[in-house]
Design a protein around this nucleic acid. Structure first.
Lengths: 307, 307
DNA sequence: CACAAGTAGTTGACTAAGTCAATTATATTA
DNA sequence: TAATATAATTGACTTAGTCAACTACTTGTG
């Protein structure tokens, strides 16, 4: 457990070293400009904030106020910015970029954009897009207010295929099941889509990615089968399983199903505990002769309602 | 077209500003150590390369040789490194980190690791994993030797689900088709898996991601249907379509199919040109009354072989 | 093999970048 | 209204980084 954290830290540090170079490359043009890196950062910051005070800048850019003061003095002398006394606070002064300043900004900005274009242009469009998406994802994850909560929603177009996809990949990886198992999952999902009103599928998402799902299908008036229950490996053991099964059980009560069953494999201890917690009991075991002879299938049943 | 590049550049610059702060945060501990940032970089570099020369370091770290020389002199004076004349080149000297140097390295390294652990620990495992994966992906894409070639392979477990997934998502987005279309795709894929020997599916990958696919299914001894042809939007117009259709056509010739047909929608001009290029002709048009009344389905046929 | 050209590393002399404490002028608050 | 805090500036400094010149070697070419 701890070593996976160590591993990740190592990867991130590798990325940091790498990305420091990329940033250095993009900042290269600043060296050729008449501005220092700190000056360039100040100038570029005026883009976002049209007007601001010196202390604002010092805080945003994490720059020494004295140092900043000198930078601003130079900018003012060169006519890049204008200052006016603040009306609300006699100590501070409002900084405003001039047209000349804006031109200097634009020049710097274009130079660094060109550097980036050079970096991107030899890549296919799709890769460029993926690159930007990866960056946005990282930014989202590392933001202070990163929303790492897991949300559960009903299924939408594409989800059913996604469920088949993850079943195919993970059951192949974890149990060595091949396309025959994939076919079985696909068949069950197809059958579900023939009459979606007979059940429901829920999808758990975290940070925009699907991290788990579960489904229920009515078999008879009072009996329903729990299906397609899967949690991505990295999200196991976080209570998501309980949340998904709860969702299904609530649905069953609403729909007056008093009998729920499911098929699973022997040996999945975490899942067994979960099922037992919800009152399921083992009712049948059989060797699986289609997908993999080593696996033993188990059926679990629970009666609901009248307490 | 050009504006999408501009948009991406803007996003990347946003990420750069953001990540500059992250790197600054992680480097914070260096400020509290007795080493400057440049010194710390040098010290940390000794991890990767056990022995190296000054010019190696200067090149890797992009540091002025004179500056580096002084840093190394200080390290030597403090007993962090040892130098020995190179036997193969009398001008250069081999630098080697001492036990004391290793300890200093470890201290710095741990401090910066701890910073990263602090950044990660409040995130769920799965998000941490995703973060690292995103970073690795970015690194791969921006590396000089980035392999942006597109490879085509036969399908493997999970692909069939993935095909259904992307059909569901993209046809919903692009044509507003709902779960009824999804069901139709799923049915066709299920039917294929019932007897995979009747056809084949190919998947195009770029940088580890699936960017397109195509399939063929034998309908009778001499007739085959081309199916599940889809290219991710960002990879359209790059010649991938031609490559995929070629793959299918070659397969058909090998299998002695002399008649291939496909169903598509009216209005996809790029696809129409592609089909025409491979000799397909429009043979049937019909309104689609199941998924979306606006769409007109088209059947295209081609006879192969005997030129 | 000699000699020009090149490379590894060092040094002196410098400039630029950044820090820190003290100071002035204004605000806030008890 | 006096004590405390904050915005901005300034002086006096340290550290970081650059550049050209130099020594001591190596390599390639006629």
């Amino acid at each position: 457990m701890e070593s996976s954290m160590q591993q990740r830290v190592k990867e991130i540090r590798k990325f940091n070293r790498f990305y420091t170079n990329i940033i250095g490359l993009v900042n290269r043009n600043v060296l050729e400009s008449p501005y220092s890196l700190a000056e360039a950062r100040v100038l570029l910051e005026f883009d976002a904030a049209v007007t601001c005070t010196a202390s604002n800048l010092a805080e945003i850019l994490q720059i020494d106020p004295g140092y900043l003061s000198r930078i601003l003095r130079r900018f003012k002398k060169e006519g890049l910015i204008e200052t006016t006394k603040s009306m609300t606070d006699g100590r501070s002064q409002i900084l405003k970029i001039t047209e000349k300043g804006r031109a200097a900004f634009r020049e710097l900005s274009e130079a660094s954009s060109n550097q980036l274009v050079g970096l991107l242009e030899h890549l296919p469009q799709g890769i460029q897009q993926a690159l930007v998406q990866n960056m946005a994802a990282i930014q989202k994850m590392l933001s202070d207010q990163a929303d790492t909560s897991i949300t559960i929603r009903r299924h939408q177009p594409g989800d059913v295929g996604y469920i088949a996809y993850r079943h195919g990949v993970l059951y192949e990886k974890e149990y060595g099941l091949d396309h025959r198992f994939e076919k079985y999952v696909l068949q069950s999902l197809t059958a579900y889509l023939e009459d979606p009103s007979r059940g429901e599928i829920w999808v758990a998402e975290c940070c925009g990615a699907i991290v788990g799902f579960i489904g229920i299908v009515g078999i008879s008036q009072r009996t329903a089968q729990l299906r397609w229950f899967l949690i991505e490996p990295d999200f196991r053991g976080s209570g998501l399983g309980r949340k998904l099964v709860s969702t299904v059980m609530e649905y069953c009560q609403q729909k007056y199903y008093n009998h729920v069953f499911l098929w699973t494999f022997k040996g999945l201890d975490a899942a067994r505990h979960l099922y037992q917690n919800f009152g399921f009991t083992l009712t049948e075991e059989k060797e699986n002769d289609t997908w993999n002879n080593q696996l033993i299938e188990q059926r679990w049943d629970v009666m609901l309602g009248v307490d």
